[in-house]
């Protein structure tokens, strides 16, 4: 029963990782752009929520009403003003520009907020839980995070396969030149993809900030978790990414149960094993 509890908690944590991963996956899927600053943008949204909560006194979850549109707009501007210019010259420019961006965001946050650890206070929600047995209890907050992750992935799937924008995303991903010939403004479509990715990122950032402490330096680790969830799940499949996140979360919580020093390590090792044994991930999209 104790082990079941560990696995359940890990799986719920995996929902958060899937949320981290969804934005990364979307940007890579549409424009083959791997955003090294992804984790720092998660942290940036957490600080954004912190400022809003401190200024208005609203509940952290309510701050999403402002944080999500703000990050959506920021993503649109970031893509049109900066990242679009990195996409025509091989793999170095996008990688190194987003790497620079990562360092800028981290140190900017450090300058503005210091290295102190912060947390968004969510009142009773933080501790409320549903007791399911002697040793099994599900916290409301982790459960909400998991449900949000599933909902976001379901919505993104709907968007990708049921809307004109999703069709344009997939067409641009297949063949950007030909998509332009069909009248797609790729700079605009790319910007919408990043905007959407950052909207998801902001959701993830706020939920992260309610669940755990955060400081300006934790971004890169979140990027690695997101990346691992994507690779474990298999490229191009959002539901696979959810599975990848869940597996990663379970590995970490089992590792932590053995020894605190093994928590993060266990996740990385599962990722490396998947890479060795199933390089295309556990649930790859069918080959075209």
């Amino acid at each position: 029963m104790a082990w079941l509890n560990i696995i359940v908690q890990g799986a719920l944590l995996g929902g958060l990782y899937a949320l981290f991963a969804a934005g990364l996956s979307l940007m890579f899927g549409v424009m083959r752009l791997v955003n090294i600053a992804h984790g720092d943008l998660i942290v940036l949204s957490a600080y954004c929520a912190l400022v809003i909560v401190q200024a208005t006194g609203m509940h952290p979850l309510a701050s999403l009403v402002l944080v999500v549109p703000l990050m959506f707009a920021f993503g649109y501007g970031l893509q049109r003003g900066l990242l679009n210019f990195t996409l025509s010259g091989g793999i170095l420019p996008p990688l190194l520009v987003t790497f620079g961006l990562s360092v800028i965001i981290q140190n900017g946050l450090l300058e503005a907020f210091s290295a102190d650890s912060r947390r968004l206070q969510a009142g009773a929600l933080e501790t409320a839980s549903l007791r399911l047995g002697d040793q099994l209890a599900i916290g409301w907050l982790p459960a909400i995070v998991f449900i949000v992750a599933v909902a976001v992935i379901a919505l993104l799937e709907q968007l990708l396969y049921r809307t004109a924008l999703g069709r344009a995303f997939r067409a641009v991903s297949d063949d950007a030149d030909t998509a332009q010939l069909s009248g797609v403004e790729i700079r605009h479509v790319f910007a919408l993809a990043t905007a959407l990715a950052l909207a998801v990122v902001s959701l993830a950032g706020v939920l992260l900030a309610i669940r755990t402490n955060f400081d300006p330096s934790i971004g890169p680790a979140r990027l690695l978790y997101a990346f691992e969830a994507v690779i474990i799940g298999g490229l191009g499949s959002l539901w696979g990414t959810l599975a990848g996140g869940v597996l990663l979360g379970i590995a970490q919580s089992l590792g932590a149960a053995l020894d605190p020093g093994w928590e993060i390590l266990a996740g990385h090792i599962v990722f490396l094993l998947v890479l060795l044994l199933r390089p295309r991930g556990l649930f790859p999209k069918q080959a075209e």
Partner: peptide
Amino acid sequence: FRLRGAYFAIGSWVVGEVFRLLLAL
């Protein structure tokens, strides 16, 4: 080397983290 391009970048980063965490043990 199973990862290409940008994925190699992040994969190599994970390897760095693995060694850091291992040495801490």
